[in-house]
Design a protein around this nucleic acid. Structure first.
Lengths: 192, 192
DNA sequence: ACCTGAACACCGTTCAAGT
DNA sequence: ACCTGAACACCGTTCAAGT
């Protein structure tokens, strides 16, 4: 049986979700496809490029954007939840997207969603910057939350981890404070 | 020559700063100490535990805290800068702290600094939560900024990266919006 | 307490060669 | 275009044994 890039990414996503990122090796992926490890290098130049394709698929699986009628605050909040949910939908999804983005690989779907929502009420430059800050908060929070799931399942106890009783509390608080700070800055600029 | 845990961490920090996290292998560390790889397992149970000790040292190297006279807003801003600077002081420092924290290993020095500053103006529970949100923003932003340095030095071009012209712009904007959102929430609570 | 020597079970990647 | 087979240069970790 022969494969193309898409089917390789399919198999990679299945291994990622079932076994986690450390188990997603080129050799294991090749075995799942019943192929030699070297065959994978026909489809992707190296493992990082493959992971970038995986990251893109995780981001593109997010829910459709909010209704165009929603004002910027509510639209951005909704997109933040959409992005976070997409990252959490696959095991270790946040870490894959974080490291891919850090290396300058892969697409920009998550950032663009947040920026588009913010542009409903702000100039493009501000929207881009705030989208980046939001995305960093979401990526940092989601990868910590996700890796903690693993650590917990292995019996480890994390230090100072307020998320345990209400997962997502820090995320919601952080996003809402950031957006209300933005609203405040906008209002005081209008008064001047 | 014989070594203890501290001297092993010293050597690990030197390799980290000079060569980066991917090059910080147990075998390379052993070679730098002129010792067999297996000797390292006398000092640390495994590589993750060693990295946790490295992460603690990075966090503890932060500048002394702000003057006790400063109000919570300014004190927290100052500590956020201190924490970020400490993470950026060693190559890949943010990533080491992020992954260690995610696994529930290592200490909590950075979080505690932020929480202590916030407690100057807020109840301990709110201070803890906001400190976590701030730390996630800082860790996400710093590890992306740091890995981008590597990517850039290899000639890669990152997509949608507003930080290029002013490094730290997203960090400052994010932290200030978050804190002014908190100030706003506090004022409206006082009116009610 | 701290280390050696040797081994085990893996990695990512390359490359000539096949169909 | 897609893959095999074999190899290269690495990993983290274990364990009996040494001083």
């Amino acid at each position: 049986m022969r494969h193309d890039r898409d089917s390789v990414v399919d198999a990679a996503l299945r291994i990622l979700d079932e076994w986690g990122l450390p188990e997603l090796t080129m050799r294991r992926l090749a075995a799942a496809l019943e192929v030699q490890p070297s065959a994978l290098y026909h489809h992707f130049a190296n493992k990082q490029t493959l992971l970038a394709a995986v990251a893109d698929r995780i981001q593109e699986a997010a829910r459709p954007g909010p209704s165009p009628a929603l004002p910027w605050y509510e639209a951005t909040l909704a997109e933040a939840v959409n992005v976070r949910d997409a990252l959490l939908a696959y095991r270790d999804g946040a870490e894959v997207v974080l490291s891919t983005r850090a290396l300058g690989l892969g697409g920009d779907a998550a950032h663009e969603r947040l920026a588009a929502a913010l542009r409903r009420g702000h100039d493009p430059e501000t929207a881009g910057l705030v989208a980046t800050a939001l995305l960093h908060l979401i990526l940092g929070d989601a990868s910590l939350a996700q890796q903690r799931l693993q650590a917990d399942s292995l019996g480890a106890v994390a230090p100072g981890t307020p998320d345990a009783s209400d997962p997502g509390l820090v995320f919601r608080l952080g996003v809402e404070l950031l957006l209300s700070g933005l609203e405040l800055a906008e209002q005081s600029a209008r008064v001047e």
